[in-house]
Design a protein around this nucleic acid. Structure first.
Lengths: 162, 162
DNA sequence: GGAATTAAGGACATATCATATCCGAAAACC
DNA sequence: GGTTTTCGGATATGATATGTCCTTAATTCC
């Protein structure tokens, strides 16, 4: 049960987009080079963010991506689900129904007890991610990353945005 | 990010093993037929439980599996990790290290901020499963499953245990 | 208007992993 | 000694993640 690496990529890209000056866009190329990622494949992750309406896009030179909402209005779960999908981590195949001792037309009133517990854990995972906003990540990063590195990173990346 | 179906199988099998009379074993064959699962492949899941010391085995006729501990001393996380492994669902590839603006020998003191958040969510998932004991599942099942079906299931399964 | 740049998305190749089956060895029971 | 069982290795298959390539349409700049 491993998350796609695109989730990691999307989160880091959103962190960068969150620090962008008003109105500026960042291209796939710039984001890929900054993180050392394959441009074409990172593009798929960014398209997922776009389809989820988390980012906006513009074509042409100086085009690319920017956040569609304030960083405090975007949480980790939205980003994770955008690229990973909303499916639960546990899928119940209802194997209890195969029990040969069950009468012919027997119908369970509730979903499987095993599934309910696994889904509860899944929901705990989602709750945690839902509670963390993109703005929280930005705050943490600006505390931990040395100011000069942080600043030069945006200069570097904006230079590539034309 | 989907769990292996073997996790579901292992949980259901443990629920049955928990209801077994003292000293009795249940074979892979019996568990597979009860749940309608491929015998050879289910065997791998049960081997995982065995390696994790959650179940004990005996060879020969009337052999098979039984719990190695009381149902109240086994939790869902142990079972899930036995077949799924203990690896976290989020793996940090440290793509921040690729940032071309970082000085040559720069070394981060903490693990990546993104990873810390994702690992926190992972821990929430584990905490939930850790808190649910196998005995809790058995209680729920004996409440929800009609008594006669529950009883005949064990008769059916014990008949196959020789 | 034309050239360059960009996102979007389809087609395709590759690698990894889950799923599944088969077999032989060792142990326990009759 | 023959049967039944777990255990582990070997192998096959299918699905999915990863990665690349190409076309199309939109936008910007000259």
């Amino acid at each position: 049960m491993i998350l796609k690496s695109q989730v990691e990529w999307a989160l880091h890209c959103c962190a960068i987009l969150a620090g962008l000056p008003e109105g500026r866009y960042l291209s796939t190329k710039a984001l890929a080079e900054l993180h050392g990622l394959p441009k074409e494949y990172l593009s798929k992750a960014l398209q997922s963010l776009s389809q989820a309406s988390l980012v906006e896009t513009t074509l042409g030179p100086s085009g690319g991506y920017r956040l569609a909402k304030t960083p405090s209005d975007i949480n980790f779960l939205e980003i994770a689900e955008a690229v990973e999908g909303k499916a639960r981590s546990f899928t119940c195949t209802n194997i209890r129904a195969n029990n040969p001792c069950r009468p012919e037309g027997y119908c369970d009133s509730k979903p499987c007890a095993v599934a309910r517990i696994m889904w509860e854990a899944d929901e705990a995972w989602r709750d945690t991610l839902r509670r963390v906003r993109l703005s929280d990540l930005v705050s943490t990063l600006s505390e931990e990353v040395p100011a000069d590195i942080w600043r030069s990173t945006f200069e570097w990346v904006l230079k590539r945005a034309g």
